[in-house]
């Protein structure tokens, strides 16, 4: 039996030792291949939770297990390598490195992870296929990322998160900079490609209207 993509037990985190708890999560289990809609008001600790899942922060208490591997047992460099191998990220905005071309931006994870490069097969061809699937013209591949519109940039970011079929894709409010009609299109494209790659998706948003697209939903309460 394959382990769950994400399993979180009794998680607690605070930024400062004497400060308030920023994240408090009793239990979360997410099976491989499913999609989760994570929402909550600003300040609910959504971003902090993503840093914890990404292995960039370590919890004060509790454990985060990805694909059966407890992150707390890995070294810092081990978590970096794990993130490169198994996780894809899409952020709210400023996802791309402006001086790299669209294609080079998509290929970034393959530079840091041999596994992602190997799973992509021919990374450049895979990047081209993903860009096409996400409705980006092939001519854009060589253009510096800074010259793209906001919507185009988000789709390039999605292609980057998807390349090499990572098991988990984490999207942090990727649609909040897009207008309503484009939001739907983006989510459909993202979920279709994630399903094709067999990836688990964690989608963070404060906009509850988007929840219908996802298999599961989790509400993160405001920090106490």
């Amino acid at each position: 039996m394959t382990p769950p993509a994400i399993r979180i037990d009794d998680l607690a985190f605070r930024w400062r030792q004497s400060g308030p708890l920023c994240v408090r999560l009793e239990q979360l289990t997410l099976a491989a291949g499913t999609s989760l809609f994570l929402h909550g008001p600003s300040g609910a600790g959504k971003t902090t939770l993503l840093n914890l899942i990404g292995g960039v922060l370590l919890p004060e208490r509790g454990r985060v297990e990805l694909l059966g591997r407890p992150l707390g047992e890995l070294s810092a460099a081990g978590r970096d390598a794990f993130r490169a191998d198994h996780l894809g990220f899409i952020f709210q905005q400023f996802n791309l490195i402006p001086y790299l071309s669209v294609c080079d931006n998509v290929l970034l994870p393959c530079r840091f992870s041999r596994r992602r490069a190997a799973r992509a097969g021919d990374p450049v061809a895979a990047a081209g296929r993903l860009l096409a699937a996400l409705d980006l013209e092939p001519a854009l591949a060589g253009v510096p990322a800074a010259e793209l519109s906001g919507g185009q940039q988000q789709r390039v970011a999605a292609a980057r998160a998807l390349i090499g079929r990572p098991e988990i894709i984490i999207a942090d409010e990727p649609t909040s900079a897009l207008d309503a009609s484009r939001q739907q299109g983006f989510i459909d494209l993202l979920l279709n490609e994630a399903r094709a790659a067999g990836s688990t998706v964690v989608f963070v948003s404060h906009d509850q209207r988007l929840a219908g697209h996802f298999d599961e939903m989790l509400e993160l309460g405001a920090a106490a």
Partner: peptide, 16 residues
């Protein structure tokens, strides 16, 4: 800082 955060998200460590 954004550039560095993007690099970290694709697997770069602080040492990189």
């Amino acid at each position: 800082r954004r550039e560095m955060a993007i690099l970290r998200s694709v697997g770069a460590g602080p040492r990189h």
